[in-house]
Amino acid sequence: MAEMKGKAWKFGDDIDTDVIIPARYLSTSEPEELAKYCMVDADPHFFNKVNKGDIMVARKNFGCGSSREHAPLSIKAAGVSCVIADSFARIFYRNSINIGLPILECADAAEKISQGDTVFVDLKKGVIKNETTGETFYASPFPEFMQEIIDAGGLIDYVKKKLIEEK
C-alpha cells in the first residue's frame, strides 16, 4: 500500500507516548485493545470518530517519551494509514517503521494541512496532496526497502518473507 487517502486529524507539538497510549492501558499488547485508547487523553472519542485510512497530522517531536512499541501499534490498529509531522522522536520513528506504520516528515504539510482536510499521500514519490485546498507538498520519498517493511506489515514479517525468498 503505497498510496492512501483520508481525512486529516490534526495535533500539536511534542505529542508524547503517554498521550498516544497512556501507561494505564499497557497491560495488553493486543493491537485491537490498544486501538480503543489511542489518543484518549487528547480526544476521548478519537477511536470512534476516526475512519479507516485517515491520516494523522502533527507538529514537531511526535512520539517523544518512552520506547513503547504500543504507541505506533495503537495508531495503526485504530485505522490510521499514515502520520505526517514536522519531526518524530527517534525511537518512535524506528518503532513505527518496524511495526509497519508509514510516517512522513514534512514541516510544510504539517503546518498547512487543517483538521478535516482530505489528504492524499504517495509514499513512493513522497508526495502529499491536500485535496481540500489543492496544495501539494513534497517529503523525502520512502526508500524501496522501507516500503517493503510497511507492505509486509512490519519488520518481523518482512524478515520472514525475505528469508523465505532467499531459500
Binding site: I91, N95, I156
Partner: peptide
C-alpha cells in the same frame, strides 16, 4: 541503541 524488535531482525 535500538529496540528489541530491531535486535531480533
Amino acid at each position: 541503541g535500538i529496540g528489541s524488535t530491531d535486535m531480533a531482525a
